[in-house]
Design a binder for these strands. Structure first.
Lengths: 147, 147
DNA sequence: GTATCTGCAAACTCTTTGCAAAAAC
DNA sequence: GTTTTTGCAAAGAGTTTGCAGATAC
């Protein structure tokens, strides 16, 4: 997996950051919600259940830090807020399906884009380091009118 | 092409919207900047050259309206502001290369994703209506240190 | 003429920042 | 002890909204 507590600790300590209780709690939120794409406000909402003293600014700062250290990956689904999930080095082959009705985000795997990247590097003289692929449409529940 | 003035007029009038001078001017900005991906503030900056009386709120409202009518397409490159370009029905096969250093956005064409979409519909029971593909990396100028 | 549209300023949402107190090592 | 981190409140960026006056048809 790559995102257990010791790996996180190492990533932090390597750059002289500390593993504070707040950071531990925020990390726990993602561990307990592995398939969600949480915004700062959502993380804060969950955190406040057990730790009401933690401030929203701390959540923002922690998410920023974790993204910088490749512990989390920041994403943008065009709804005006940043969203986060555990960083996966295989994120290249992990894309998002975004429901236009209920906003639910699911994932799917594919490695089709590898070939496309090398083509771009040649044709467009552009060095690709990452990509993002999103599909917009309607999830099963919304198509059935259940959501 | 599909985005000449008469087509725009029809799209507006069909829904009882008017083609006001302000809307005409904003449309003109896109006509004169066909390969750019302008933000509201950027459009306003250009508009103010000839029409300093036009307010930023009008620009926002017009861009919103044009996006709703498929005259423009709203995009999000993750820099915290909406960006717009002429809507193309072939937008499906038109993707973006975003330079991580200078922010320059270029485009490239590809229709590889058609097959992927039908695969998703089957595998994930998700009805795809649109997609967005972005590649992040370094443009030629930034790789040479010219930018 | 009347419904739509505009410009302005104020409000709103999400995010960042300054600062003094608290905590980590 | 010193440096990092936190919580709070205030500031910031981008966008939206309410409203009275102006404009398109």
């Amino acid at each position: 997996m790559g995102h257990n507590i010791d790996v996180v600790k190492k990533k932090l300590y390597d750059k002289d950051y500390k593993l504070t209780p707040q950071r531990r709690v925020i990390l726990g939120v993602f561990a307990k919600n592995p398939d969600k794409h949480l915004s700062a406000e959502e993380v804060w909402g969950i955190v406040k259940g057990t730790n009401p003293e933690i401030g929203l600014a701390t959540v923002y700062r922690t998410l920023d830090l974790f993204a910088e250290l490749d512990i989390l990956q920041k994403m943008d689904f065009g709804d005006g807020r940043g969203r986060y999930e555990f960083y996966e080095s295989e994120v290249h082959n992990h894309h998002h399906l975004i429901c236009l009705k209920c906003g639910y985000v699911s994932e799917f795997e594919d490695d089709l884009l590898e070939t496309l990247e090398s083509e771009i590097e040649k044709k467009n003289r552009f060095q690709v380091v990452d990509h993002q692929l999103k599909f917009y449409g309607y999830c099963e529940k919304c198509r059935q009118g259940t959501r």
